[in-house]
Amino acid sequence: MTSEVVTEFTVNGQAVRLDLDPRESLLDVLRERLGLTGSKKGCDHGQCGACTVHVDGRRVVSCLLPAVQVNGRSVRTIEGVAGPDGALHPLQQAFVDHDALQCGYCTPGQVMSGLACIAEGNAGADDDIREHMSGNLCRCGAYPGILAAVRAAAGRREG
């Protein structure tokens, strides 16, 4: 029997303390234990990006992260992006304005990735955005809208 591991971290600023089976992925902990179902499971093997969250400010795929590894770290999920009053983050608003989504299933991961893409300085040119948003599959094919939204939120015009 696997022994459980006490794991303490913050999610969207809230402290969390859990006894975790080391087999649990961060994604499953967020979804099944913490009720944060915005992060989505699309492959469970790091092949789609739907589960993208930020750990210590960097984007990662939470499905390939054993949750015990976030001990002492801070996690930000899609639920922590809009303001406390519900005001959309400019990138979220840009996703709405540029219709950067269809079914919406990959969208939380796209938004988390887009936030990081801009913060990393990888939104300087359209091809940079395309390349650095390629870790997030969208089967509906909303890529042109996603490009436009990230570009707009980065304060750039087309080109």
Binding site: E32, L36, G38, T77, L101, G104, P108
Partner: peptide, 25 residues
């Protein structure tokens, strides 16, 4: 007009089937 439901989708509030988590699951 923008897509209906877009706000729910960009905030992660949209509930898909497997997002349902009743007690005792």
């Amino acid at each position: 007009t923008p897509r209906v439901g877009a706000r729910e989708k960009v905030t992660g509030a949209a509930r898909y089937g497997a997002d349902h988590a009743p007690p005792g699951l």
